[in-house]
């Protein structure tokens, strides 16, 4: 390997002595390379870095927008939730009120009917007792009249006297 390095240097030295170009000295290639790179630079600046930065900015904007949307949606969700709960509570209260009212009305109706029925029952009872009384009163003289004969007959049977028969 040592030989390789030394002899390589020898080759270079002989080349330089022979008047051939030293490869460490730049030549006209420099300007062509520079021109090629400047073209590449121009194209990349215009067609790559600009659009890519635009894309990155746009994406950042979209991400920020999405975050904002998410937050807003969460806020709306929470608001809707609380509104729903509030509505639910008021609806429950209302429903309880309506139920109570209905119960009260029902009781009232039932009471009314019960009162009416009681009245009717009382009326019927009164009528019945009246008619019974009338009938009783009607029958009483007849029965009173027959009491004499019956008691007489009974007494006669007890003492064994045939009272006129």
């Amino acid at each position: 390997m040592g030989v390789a390095v030394i002899s390589g240097a020898t080759v270079l030295a002989t080349e330089a002595e022979a008047g051939t170009t030293n490869f460490l000295v730049p030549n006209g290639t420099f300007f062509f390379i520079l021109a090629i790179f400047l073209i590449v630079f121009g194209v990349i600046a215009k067609f790559v870095v600009q659009p890519v930065q635009k894309v990155l900015d746009e994406r950042d904007r979209l991400v920020a927008q999405t975050t904002l949307d998410n937050r807003r949606a969460a806020e709306q969700d929470a608001a809707a939730e609380s509104e729903f709960k509030q509505e639910l509570t008021s609806a429950r209260t209302q429903a309880g009120g309506i139920r109570d009212q209905a119960r009260a009305e029902g009781r009232q109706v039932a009471d009314e009917f019960r009162a009416a029925a009681n009245e009717k029952v009382a009326e019927k009872l009164r009528q019945a007792s009246e008619s019974l009384k009338v009938e009783g009163d009607g029958l009483a003289p007849t029965l009173n009249a027959s009491v004499e004969n019956l008691s007489l007959t009974l007494a006669n049977r007890i003492i064994g006297v045939d009272g006129g028969r």
Binding site: L24, P26, T29, F30, I33, F37
Partner: peptide, 12 residues
């Protein structure tokens, strides 16, 4: 591996 290339870029 050509000095012209690297010099062009470095000097730019």
């Amino acid at each position: 591996s050509d000095i012209n290339f690297v010099l062009a870029l470095a000097l730019l």
